[in-house]
């Protein structure tokens, strides 16, 4: 595929994890593929039986493990193959979405939405706009262990220990 429409801009690869439900969104992505709608290629899709199967911890784990974004998509509310899986899922995702900010992970890196099996066009829109959003945010900050201040502390302690009796803390007793 050529990047003629500008959707597939060059640059670094992003790692975006997609959780799609088997009955609607995975079908929707398939429809988009069969219809040969052009899509960005940064998304890695994981197929799950239902959006209700997605533990919010899957998303948290993906983000902590260095994913640049997580896209979750299920059947539209009222259209769940299992009648009510996505209703429970919606509450859980909303909790996680609002919670993420306090951990310092940008909540914009997580998006959940609904795409039905016939909505190939909509799938293209969803995946394109989400990828563009992540591309703007850039690669996620990698877990590096923070500022490493405790290592500085350990160095200071080691230096003080090496002083032995000369250390200022011994003065009082002397």
């Amino acid at each position: 595929m050529s990047g003629s429409t500008g959707l597939l801009t060059e640059g670094q690869d992003l790692r975006i994890v997609g959780f799609l439900c088997n009955w609607c969104s995975y079908g929707g992505a398939d429809t988009a593929g069969v219809a040969r709608f052009e899509q960005p290629t940064d998304l890695r899709v994981i197929r799950v039986p239902c959006s209700g199967r997605i533990d919010p911890l899957f998303i948290a784990r993906a983000l902590l493990s260095g994913a640049d974004g997580v896209l979750v998509s299920g059947c539209h509310p009222r259209d769940c193959h299992y009648a009510e899986g996505n209703f429970y899922a919606r509450r859980r995702f909303e909790m996680l979405k609002q919670f993420l900010s306090v951990t310092g992970i940008d909540p914009e890196r997580f998006h959940y939405t609904w795409v039905s099996a016939s909505e190939g066009q909509r799938w293209q829109d969803v995946v394109t706009s989400f990828t563009e959003r992540i591309r703007k945010l850039g690669p996620a900050t990698k877990m590096a262990g923070g500022t490493g201040y405790d290592e500085e502390c350990l160095k200071e302690i080691a230096a003080a220990v090496s002083l032995g009796d000369q250390c200022p803390c011994h003065k009082e007793k002397a």
Partner: peptide, 19 residues
């Protein structure tokens, strides 16, 4: 705490979780 930027918060938690 929420006055901090996202990066500062992330760094804060990494420092804490390291301990």
């Amino acid at each position: 705490f929420e006055k901090l930027t996202m990066e500062e918060r992330f760094t804060f938690w990494q420092d804490q979780m390291r301990r």
